[in-house]
Amino acid sequence: MTQTRNGHRDGHSEQGALPGDHPDRSRNPVIKVVDIAWLEFEKPDLVRTEAFARAFGFHTEEHGRDGLHLRGTAAGRPCVLVRRGPRTRFAGAAFRAGGEADVLRLADNFGTRARRLPETIGGLAVDLIDPSGMPVRVVAGMHELPELTGQQPHAFNFGNDVRRTNAAQRPPRVPARVRRLGHLVVQSTTYLTTLNWYLDNLGMIVSDFLFFPGQRDRGPTMSFVRCDRGSTPADHHTLALALGPANRYMHSAFEVSDLDALAAGGEYLREHGYVRSWGIGRHIQGSQIFDYWRDPDGFLVEHFTDGDLFDNSAEPGWAPFTASGLAQWGPPATRDFLGTDLKSARHELISMISALRDRNEFDSRRLLGRLKVAVS
């Protein structure tokens, strides 16, 4: 990482970078990915998995004895691949390159070979492992699935801006129809090393940095990272990385059409016995309206709408990492979402002890900073 950028002109955060802060991008990345493609999971109970997926708003593109391909309504490809396995686990993420030449360039850079994907998906892939141990697949040239009928955003009246007359607003209480995969959030014990890996190799850009309270001098501990599409706007974050005591999946987010779809879809999930983790609210970093749910295996998944879009001219914001700073409005972040509830405490304690014994970026001062997050 060699490039530094000074100043803060875009105004999406109250604080910009200071001299010597971690750069938001790499000067000469190997390639520049253009989007996140899909997530991969292993689960033993595909019937239960598909039932939740339908209630959450996915469409089943492929259903076999040993796997599921789940998609949204947007044209493209399945955004979640589930294969039958002996235990439940997150199995990695795929990012879409600009073309097959980029996949080959990346493979050559890592001294490995690209391979053809199964015919049901099509295209070329190179399989990598990031520094935190997460499988990362970079892909291009897949078959394009046609757009499906989605939920149309509602027309709203805003004071004198009248767009709806002689018609009532009656959003149905049905599953929100997922449009697409928006982003993935993961935790890493080697946060900075892992962040630099994505910036240097996949050409991604940081939209916002967070730092532990009272530890700005030690640099960031979370970053919201977007794709560099030049002057074409991209999601505020496609990937978010956070420093923590374990390398693990935190949550993934899927876009729906509007607030009514998100809220009515949440009511549908609640009525069918699923557990809301946190919501409804509006985030600060990314600005999206959010609603978080637990799937039957405990994975955290998010409905979102109205997120920020940045082109590559936007410079990074800097802010303290606090529980109260995660949302502009909405209920306080829950213990379930923050991982401070009783069912998570024992597992978290073991992770912290293990991390402090190993050589990584999660030291005792970082532990104290992380403990402050939940109460600040």
Score class of each variant (00 low, 15 high):
residue 152 Q to S: 14
residue 249 Y to M: 05
residue 9 R to E: 02
residue 243 L to A: 04
residue 140 A to Q: 06
residue 311 D to E: 04
residue 374 A to Y: 12
residue 208 D to F: 05
residue 28 N to L: 11
residue 311 D to N: 14
residue 98 G to C: 03
residue 70 L to A: 05
residue 118 P to W: 11
residue 232 T to C: 02
residue 329 W to P: 11
residue 51 A to R: 15
residue 302 E to Q: 12
residue 10 D to N: 10
residue 329 W to Q: 07
residue 246 A to T: 01
residue 260 D to Y: 05
residue 203 G to S: 05
residue 41 F to T: 01
residue 101 A to L: 10
residue 234 A to G: 02
residue 198 Y to F: 15
residue 29 P to M: 07
residue 350 I to S: 03
residue 99 G to E: 02
residue 188 S to F: 11
residue 305 T to K: 06
residue 112 T to W: 13
residue 105 R to H: 07
residue 38 W to Q: 04
residue 211 F to E: 05
residue 146 P to V: 05
residue 126 V to G: 08
residue 245 P to M: 10
residue 194 T to K: 03
residue 247 N to H: 06
residue 85 G to Q: 06
residue 243 L to S: 00
residue 15 Q to F: 14
residue 73 T to M: 10
residue 129 I to Y: 03
residue 337 F to M: 15
residue 202 L to G: 00
residue 91 A to Y: 15
residue 135 P to C: 08
residue 3 Q to N: 02
residue 46 L to I: 06
residue 358 D to N: 12
residue 359 R to T: 09
residue 108 D to Y: 06
residue 272 H to M: 09
residue 69 H to F: 10
residue 341 D to Q: 04
residue 126 V to S: 04
residue 269 L to V: 01
residue 124 L to A: 09
residue 46 L to R: 09
residue 243 L to W: 03
residue 280 I to C: 13
residue 131 P to S: 08
residue 211 F to T: 03
residue 198 Y to V: 03
residue 135 P to G: 10
residue 334 T to H: 07
residue 113 R to S: 08
residue 194 T to R: 12
residue 192 L to G: 00
residue 200 D to C: 09
residue 112 T to R: 13
residue 2 T to E: 12
residue 278 W to K: 11
residue 291 D to R: 05
residue 7 G to I: 11
residue 299 F to A: 07
residue 201 N to A: 07
residue 316 P to R: 11
residue 373 V to G: 01
residue 211 F to R: 06
residue 282 R to Y: 10
residue 10 D to F: 14
residue 310 F to T: 00
residue 209 F to W: 09
residue 292 Y to W: 11
residue 110 F to Y: 15
residue 112 T to F: 14
residue 107 A to Q: 02
residue 97 A to L: 08
residue 330 G to F: 13
residue 154 H to G: 03
residue 88 T to R: 05
residue 35 D to L: 05
residue 8 H to F: 15
residue 27 R to F: 10
residue 264 A to I: 02
residue 148 L to M: 13
residue 95 F to R: 00
residue 289 I to G: 01
